[in-house]
């Protein structure tokens, strides 16, 4: 399959997904509902995110590469939290405990290194 065909297919998938989701019931998020942000991990980085992470939000991170990762997070106070090993295709979650600057890294791949600023 060539690259252009793939692009086209992705485009079609986009449209189909859009149609499916608009036909569902409209849900409104309220203050009390937990917020889950989808994120993804490739071979060598976290894909750029556009949401604003806040304290108590949950990140659901999917490993979209074909290799395993071992993500760990350094908290603002220096505490290191290990999220074990993430196999290809797996989604793992982490709930942000408080506002501040967090560093997301991978034990296997030092090139993966992303800072996340969390608002209150």
């Amino acid at each position: 399959m060539n690259r252009e065909l793939k692009r086209w297919l992705s485009g079609m998938m986009l449209i189909i997904t859009a149609l499916i989701s608009t036909s569902g019931s409209a849900e409104q998020l309220t203050e009390s509902e937990p917020v889950i942000h989808q994120m993804s991990l490739t071979h060598h980085d976290f894909e750029e995110w556009t949401f604003t992470p806040r304290a108590n939000d949950t990140l659901a991170i999917t490993n979209k590469s074909d290799i395993a990762h071992s993500i760990y997070i350094t908290y603002p106070d220096g505490t290191v939290v290990n999220l074990d090993v993430q196999l290809p295709g797996e989604t793992f979650t982490w709930t942000i405990p408080a506002a501040g600057n967090y560093m997301l890294q991978c034990w296997i791949h030092p090139i993966i290194r992303e800072e996340m600023t969390v608002s209150p």
């Binding site: 793939k6 998938m13 998020l29």
Partner: peptide
């Protein structure tokens, strides 16, 4: 407004799966 945002996010997710598969 919320609805549109989640739609866009979902769309982005679908797109990125394909992009990264191609990348691998």
């Amino acid at each position: 407004m919320m609805k549109i945002r989640s739609l866009v996010m979902l769309a982005c997710t679908v797109f990125s799966v394909h992009a990264s598969l191609a990348e691998d």
